[in-house]
Design a protein around this nucleic acid. Structure first.
Lengths: 334, 334
DNA sequence: TTGAAAGCGCTAACAG
DNA sequence: CTGTTAGCGCTTTCAA
C-alpha cells in the first residue's frame, strides 16, 4: 500500500498474513464455520491497526445494492422535514442503511434535475409531500410516499389530518363557536386538499358557517387572508369567532391580523393551527393545534420502504394526530 | 442485458454497434478529436433509447473520487441548517458535485460507529457549528469548518457575529439604554463564546452594565433566564431596560418572561435576537435582530471546499451580519 | 479451514 | 478514428 491512500482489504490481508478473501469473510461477518477463531482475531487486529474501512463504491458495485435510500422533501428550510429525516434516519440505521436527503425543487437552485448531477445511487425512495410525477422519473426504484394521496400508485404513510380537523372543530364547537373562518393555504398538496374538505364537512356537521380566504404558506399572506375574513362582515356580530388555519405558520399570520384590528386572541377571537411545530409555543398566546408526529412519519415510512425492499407491498398506514389545547382558543363571549 | 436491470455502457455499445470504450468516451464528453461526429450521434441516440445512466459506484471505484461532499450539521430540526444546505448544494451543483447531509449527533439516534453504517464515500466535508474533534475521525478527508473557531486546524468561513453584537449594542445605546441583560445560551460553540465576549466588550465600551443569565437553547429555558434577569433587581428602576438574547429563539422566551410580568415590549423593555430566522417576523412585536446569511455561509463554505479540493488552502472568510431594526426596540422612557 | 479467481461497470492508456 | 485491455476494491463461488 502507499502511505497516502486508504488501506484496502488486500493491505489487511498482507498485514495479517492471510488471503484477501479471508479478510472479506471475516470483516463481512460471514466466517462462522469457515475461518478459525484464531485467524479471525488476527484479521480483526490487522484491520484495526490499519484503520481499515471498506470501500463503499466497490461494495455496491459488487453487490448491486447501495444500502442507501433517498429522502425527497420539498425543502429543508421548514423544520418539519428535518424531523421527518430524523425519524427515517434512525429507523434506517437500525437496519444498516444510510439516508441521503434530496430537497426538490426549492433548495438546490433552479432546475437541477435529478439527472443533471451525478446523483446518488440508491436502493429506494421515500418522498414526503411530493407530487407523484416527480418520483415517477426514477423508473424501477421502489418508492414509498409520505403525506400524499393514498389513491396513488405507491404505498403511503399519512397523517390523520381529516380527524385532526374534526377534532379541532369539535373542540371549537364545544366552546360555542359557530361562525368559522378558514385561513387556507394555496398549496397543491394532498394534505391541504384533505384539510379543506374535512374542515368544510366538520363545520357543516356542527351546524356552523365557514368563510374561506387563501394565501401562500407564509406569514404575510396568511395575515392578509385572515384580515379579509375579519373585515368581510360589515357587522362585527357576523364576523367569524374562530379562525381555523391550515398550519401553525398561517396561525401566526392570523394573530397579526387580529392584533392589527385591536382584537385580542383568545378573548375576541379563537385561532387554531395544525402541525405543532416549535412556533406553536413561541407565539403568545400559545397555539391550540394538532400535533402531527413528523418523526414518526419518517420512521414508519422507512419501515414501509424496508418492507417494500423485501418484496412485499406494505399496507397504507395512517398516523393519528393529537389535539393539543393551549391558550389560543376560548369560549365565545355569550 | 436482462430486461429488468439497468442498461450498462456495454448494452449501449451493443445497441450502437460500437465498442464499450467508445461509449465511455462519448458519454464522458471526451471524444473531441477522437471519435467521429457520426459515431457520437449514433451512440448518443442509443444511450437515449435505452435510458442509459452511468453507474456511479463503478465510476467512483474507477476514479477514486465520488463527486460528493458531506455537510455535517448538529441537527436538521433547526431551519437555519436547512438554509446552509441550500446554499452549499446550489454552489456544489454548479460544479457537478452532490451534497449529502449528515446530522450529527442528534438526529440519527445513538452512536452509529464508523463500522455500523456504511456511510457515504465522500471527497470532502463541510462541517457547520461542530466541534473540531468530531471531524477529525475522517482522517485525510479535506475539511472546511463553518461557523467555527478560526483558530483551529481547518479553513473556516464565519459570520461576523462580534460586529453584529456591537451593532446591536450601538443601536440600543443610541436609544438611551444603559442597563443591559444578556439572555445567554449554554451551548459550547464558537459562535456563542464570541457573542458573549463581544457583547460584554461592547456594553463596557458604551458605559453600560450587563447582567447575565443562561439557559439551554430553547424557549422555556430562555424564558426562565430572562425572568431571573427581570426579577433580580429589587428596585424596578435598576432593572435592565434591554435584553440582548443569544438568538431569536431565546428572544421568544424573553418576550414570554416580559409578558408574564406585565411588561410590554418594547414600551417597557427592549429585546433583541440574532440570526433572523422566520420566527423573528412571526413574533409580535417583530424582532430587532441581526441577519446572519445562512445560505451564503453554505455557498461560501462550498467555494472554500472546492478551493481546498483543488489543492490550495483557502483564506478564512467572514460574512458580515446585518442589523435589522424592527419593532422590539425603542428609546428608554426618559 | 483457507486461497484462487471471476467479475460487478466504468475510465483511460495503449494498440491498431 | 476505434477497439482491446487492465484494473479500481470488493464479495462469493469453487477448489484445494
Amino acid at each position: 500500500m502507499t502511505a497516502t491512500s486508504r488501506p484496502t482489504s488486500r493491505d489487511v490481508a498482507h498485514e495479517a498474513g492471510v488471503s484477501q478473501s479471508t479478510v472479506s469473510l471475516v470483516l463481512g461477518g460471514k466466517w462462522a464455520g469457515r475461518v478459525s477463531p484464531a485467524t479471525v482475531a488476527t484479521v480483526q487486529a490487522a484491520a484495526e491497526r490499519l484503520g481499515y474501512r471498506p470501500n463503499p463504491a466497490a461494495r455496491s458495485l459488487r453487490l448491486g445494492t447501495t444500502r442507501t435510500v433517498m429522502l425527497m422533501v420539498p425543502t429543508l428550510t421548514a423544520p418539519f422535514f428535518g424531523s421527518v429525516y430524523a425519524g427515517a434516519a434512525r429507523e434506517a440505521a437500525r437496519h444498516g442503511l444510510g439516508v441521503v436527503v434530496y430537497p426538490w425543487p426549492d433548495d438546490a437552485g433552479p432546475a437541477d434535475s435529478p439527472f443533471a448531477t451525478p446523483h446518488e445511487a440508491i436502493d429506494g425512495i421515500l418522498a414526503s409531500s411530493m407530487p407523484e410525477e416527480v418520483v415517477e422519473r426514477f423508473h424501477g426504484t421502489p418508492v414509498v410516499m409520505l403525506d400524499s394521496d393514498p389513491g396513488g400508485r405507491f404505498p403511503t404513510v399519512n397523517f390523520g389530518v381529516a380527524d385532526g380537523m374534526r377534532a379541532l372543530v369539535a373542540h371549537l364547537a364545544g366552546l360555542g363557536h359557530r361562525r368559522f373562518g378558514h385561513v387556507a393555504a394555496t398549496v397543491h398538496q394532498w394534505t391541504f386538499h384533505t384539510r379543506h374538505a374535512a374542515l368544510a364537512a366538520a363545520v357543516a356537521e356542527a351546524g356552523g358557517t365557514l368563510a374561506r380566504a387563501a394565501g401562500a404558506l407564509d406569514i404575510t399572506e396568511a395575515k392578509d387572508a385572515a384580515g379579509r375574513l375579519l373585515d368581510a362582515a360589515p357587522d362585527p356580530a357576523a364576523r367569524p369567532t374562530a379562525l381555523v388555519c391550515d398550519d401553525d405558520l398561517m396561525a401566526a399570520g392570523a394573530y397579526k391580523a387580529a392584533r392589527a384590528r385591536g382584537l385580542e386572541v383568545p378573548a375576541d377571537l379563537s385561532v387554531t393551527g395544525m402541525d405543532d411545530v416549535l412556533l406553536a409555543t413561541a407565539l403568545e398566546p400559545e397555539l391550540t393545534t394538532v400535533r402531527l408526529p413528523a418523526e414518526e412519519l419518517g420512521a414508519e415510512g422507512m419501515r414501509s420502504l424496508l418492507t417494500l425492499l423485501n418484496g412485499t407491498r406494505p399496507e397504507p398506514r395512517t398516523l393519528p394526530g393529537e389535539l393539543v389545547v393551549r391558550a389560543s382558543t376560548r369560549a365565545t363571549g355569550r
